[in-house]
């Protein structure tokens, strides 16, 4: 049934899927840099099962991870896959899409996603090809449908509410809310344990955090980290982003350039976060080039 299922050889593709709420299955990503061993299986990806069909939310970094996802779906249901959702442009979330290319499904992303994939796709492909032996055969597949603001879909007695956000973590952030279980699939708008990566707008992200967790949200699946009610995770992430904002604003007020700002803030002690190396420095550069235009 699955053409290349036999080729699922790596530990990355074999990571288990767990049911975190009724009919919602998640493969939890590893808190590691991308390596030949993990082949970029660092993000949370998974699927939601309705009465009639299945929606995939993020597909992983490689075609193999996408195929493993298809196998995991086949292990729990024979319902067809009707929707493939990308929460944003980053390769660890939507570069497994090619595993679903033979299916007649609705592939959905933020309105900015096609352009963002065009801008970054070739770069990510080259980057990953040099790291990951599994990457052969993986191609970038843009969505066939985009979300301007909101989109409601239904998997059969299982309505899902998709929302496209203003620029925050990236300029392609899309969330999936499942009212049946009160579960918000937040993508990388929420990082837990792994240090957030800033690739969109620091000020925009802080603003989005104000409205990310509506009253009805009882459970959050972050892009990285554990499932929880989201409140503590969002507080920790806000603290990091606000500290970054305040530190960079002060550096700008002190007329520091980028190297001097990195020297001042780059050695910050961040004991609450994992995979900090390089990410914090890149976040500082990103925040600097945004906030210098305030």
């Amino acid at each position: 049934m699955l053409p290349a299922a036999a080729a699922l050889s790596t530990a990355a593709a074999a990571l288990p899927y767990r049911e975190v709420a009724e009919g919602i299955f998640v493969r939890f990503g590893l808190h590691e840099e991308v390596t030949a061993d993990n082949c970029g299986a660092i993000a949370n990806i998974g699927f939601i099962v309705g009465d009639a069909s299945v929606a995939v939310v993020d597909s992983g970094t490689t075609q193999q991870q996408g195929l493993a996802l298809r196998q995991a779906i086949a292990d729990v249901t024979d319902k067809p896959i009707s929707h493939l959702v990308a929460t944003h442009v980053h390769f660890d979330h939507c570069f497994g899409h090619s595993a679903f290319a033979d299916l007649p499904l609705r592939s959905i992303g933020h309105r900015n996603l096609p352009r963002a994939l065009a801008e970054r796709g070739a770069f990510y492909v080259q980057l990953l090809s040099g790291i990951c032996p599994d990457f052969a055969g993986t191609v970038v597949v843009p969505p066939n449908e985009t979300v301007e603001d909101r989109l409601d879909i239904d998997l059969g007695n299982r309505p899902l509410r998709l929302k496209a956000w203003p620029t925050a973590h990236t300029n392609t952030d899309l969330t999936v809310f499942d009212p049946s279980t009160g579960t918000l699939w937040a993508g990388d708008l929420l990082f837990d344990q792994r240090l957030p990566t800033l690739d969109g707008s620091l000020l925009g992200w802080l603003e989005v955090l104000d409205s990310l967790l509506a009253e009805e949200v009882r459970r959050v699946i972050p892009g990285h980290g554990a499932v929880s009610d989201g409140r503590a995770a969002i507080t920790a992430q806000r603290r990091y982003l606000e500290t970054l904002r305040d530190g960079v604003r002060q550096a700008l007020a002190d007329d520091l350039d980028i190297p001097a700002t990195l020297a001042r803030l780059g050695a910050d002690d961040l004991p609450d976060w994992q995979v900090v190396e390089d990410v914090h420095g890149r976040n500082i550069v990103s925040a600097y080039t945004e906030l210098e235009w305030e």
Binding site: F123, Q126, G200, T289, W293
Partner: peptide, 29 residues
Amino acid sequence: ASGGCSAPAAGDAEAALARLGKMRLKQLG
């Protein structure tokens, strides 16, 4: 370093275009 020409700088392309041509001058000290 690698990829700097094919990967755009982080950020928001729309906001950047809306700001096209705007300038700043900062007197340092």
